[in-house]
């Protein structure tokens, strides 16, 4: 079984459109949407939820106003500004480390477990999708990603799947690291802009840091042939295989608006190129 993470560094380069198309093209696979902050794959795959699980992630301090005698030890020890001058917990600052609850001389602080989100196992027209929804303004996206990847690995092993296809989040921080740790290949989707190249380079560096092979796709390559050339030169210099160049294609926007994967539009030039990329990747 092979795990492929589709990722981009910079958001909005077309990563989810490409993952969605892979869902339609790959035969025996499990799909995972690891962009738990702002999951979008379900808008193309229309999952029917079969299993729903709570995700408990992290903790929050709760101060018992009766017991608290405002000695100030907690506020002085907290490095995140989690306790306000009037001894209220600042919910957007508290990182749930629990130090205050351990040092409070009056035992006035307890830690409350937070329900930080939900995750789902669903059926779609293209097979199983494991996805999640991180609670609004919640922390711990990395742990939620690891949780759903574990669930997907189990399902894939039980069903004899050949691939796990992971739609990753933007950036290079904790949810991204959790999305690519232990995968067999990362496919970086970029666009021909200087920002796209800058961000793709950082993700590729991250893949190298974790010793995971990376390949690249330039999406909407014809929007700026000059920068596409720069990206090609970059790939050559770094020895990164360029698996394909997807042309700008209005069908892609139409497909997103209609909530479909782009391969459902037979004449679409973008779909044709993505099909070629999948054929390359699959072996």
């Amino acid at each position: 079984m092979k795990q492929i993470t589709v990722i981009s560094g910079k958001g909005g380069t077309g990563k989810t459109v490409i993952s969605g198309a892979f869902a339609a093209l790959a035969e025996k696979k499990v799909m995972v949407d690891c962009d738990v902050d702002a999951a979008d794959l379900h808008l193309l795959l229309h999952p029917e939820i079969k299993e729903r699980h709570e995700f408990k992630g992290g903790q929050l301090s709760v101060i018992d106003e009766v017991k608290c005698d405002k000695c100030g030890k907690c506020a002085a020890a907290c490095r995140f500004g989690g306790i306000s001058p009037v001894f209220k917990v600042e919910v957007f600052s508290c990182q749930g480390c629990g130090l205050c609850s351990r040092i409070c001389p009056r035992g006035a602080i307890r830690m409350k477990e937070k329900i930080a989100g939900e995750w789902f196992v669903s059926d779609t027209a293209y097979g199983v999708l494991v996805h999640a929804r991180l609670g609004i303004a919640e922390d711990n996206s990395g742990r939620l990603v690891s949780r759903i990847r574990q669930a997907a690995e189990k399902i894939a092993a039980a069903g004899g799947a050949d691939y796990i296809i992971i739609d990753g989040p933007p950036g290079i921080g904790c949810p991204v690291i959790a999305s690519l740790a232990g995968t067999d290949l990362i496919l970086v989707v970029t666009e021909p802009t200087l920002s796209g190249l800058h961000d793709a380079a950082r993700v590729i560096e991250l893949a190298a840091h974790f010793k995971i092979p990376a390949a690249l796709v330039v999406n909407k390559y014809d929007l700026n042939p000059g920068v596409t050339e720069k990206i090609e030169a970059f790939c050559l210099a770094r020895n990164i295989p360029l698996t394909g160049k997807v042309p700008f294609d209005k069908t892609v926007v139409r497909a997103v608006v209609e909530g479909k994967v782009v391969t459902e539009y037979p004449g679409s030039p973008a779909a044709g190129e993505i099909r070629k990329i999948w054929d390359l990747l699959k072996d």
Partner: peptide
């Protein structure tokens, strides 16, 4: 600010 809805965004827009 960074994209998304979790801790980095909150930290940035706070």
């Amino acid at each position: 600010a960074p994209p998304g809805t979790s801790c980095p965004v909150i930290c940035a827009v706070k």
